[in-house]
Amino acid sequence: MEAYGEAMIEAQHISKWFGPTLAVDDVSLKVERGEVQGFLGPNGAGKSTTMRMITGFLPLSAGSVTIGGHDIEEDPIAAKSLVGYLPENAPAYPEMSVEGFLRFAAEIRGLRGRQVTEAVERAIRTCFLERVRYQSIDTLSKGYLHRSCFAQAILHDPPVLVMDEPTDGLDPNQKHEVRELIKEMGKTKAIIVSTHILEEVEAICTGVVIIDRGRLVFRGTPAELKARSALAGAVSCRVFGPSAEELMASLRGVSGGGAPEVLASSNGGVAVRVPPAAEGGDGLARRVCRLFVEKGWEFDELHTEGGRLDEVFRAVTLPDTVQENGA
């Protein structure tokens, strides 16, 4: 077992041309053991293409990928044997039974005899496939199909896992199970997960990478991503008593606060939000609170916003409409 903290997946300046179009443009990333790297980006941003290059399915146009120290193009067999891969849409052979499919995957991964049976049983247990083990794959529901392919990826207990939208098409319970599973495995493996569900990133990832139009536009932790939000640190609350104008006027005087904003007013209550100023935004909630107490206004739902991922996501990536109308 290699030491933790060692880079298991290392992609250096990888690019991919499809004919004249540049699908992935100079992306570098590094995933260590014990890390779950979330891969975000709008549709068609190059997430799947990048994953396909990392797993050795697509040849690289430029750059290099090493898995556990083995170059994916120079020493593909050694590199690929360290990887478990769940491709987009969970492809599987429709005429095979779930168990047969997993046995095939185990055998082609080089397991033999008892090892095959043990690995298959373990994968069936982990992915809750007991009920459908003898069913043929083309009769499976989407959730089971997805989990069968997932089982195939974790079968040989690989140190590296690459998963393209692992929770796509699952119901909320299954999503939860799969996330727990990824989180659990993330403690000992190096994992890359692509998704466009932002809560998922918060729930399971230790790091985030955002790709837009083939370029890497953000790299950091989910907390750093949230902190980029203009809303991060804003204080919102509902106040009873003063009129909206009066409230605004007093809130403008709070030090460390930006221009306040009325969100809604109903039943005599006014919902407001005070964004933090560029400097000295710390303790804003306390100062707002003190103001209300001094004025003798009643209030509730006072809280500090942690920032919104979707807002940051929109800010760092261009929406389709801009991409199509623009350059």
Partner: peptide
Amino acid sequence: RLGTLELLLTMPIN
């Protein structure tokens, strides 16, 4: 068509 090509060619085989 099925996409299993992606599965097969990312297995540790030539």
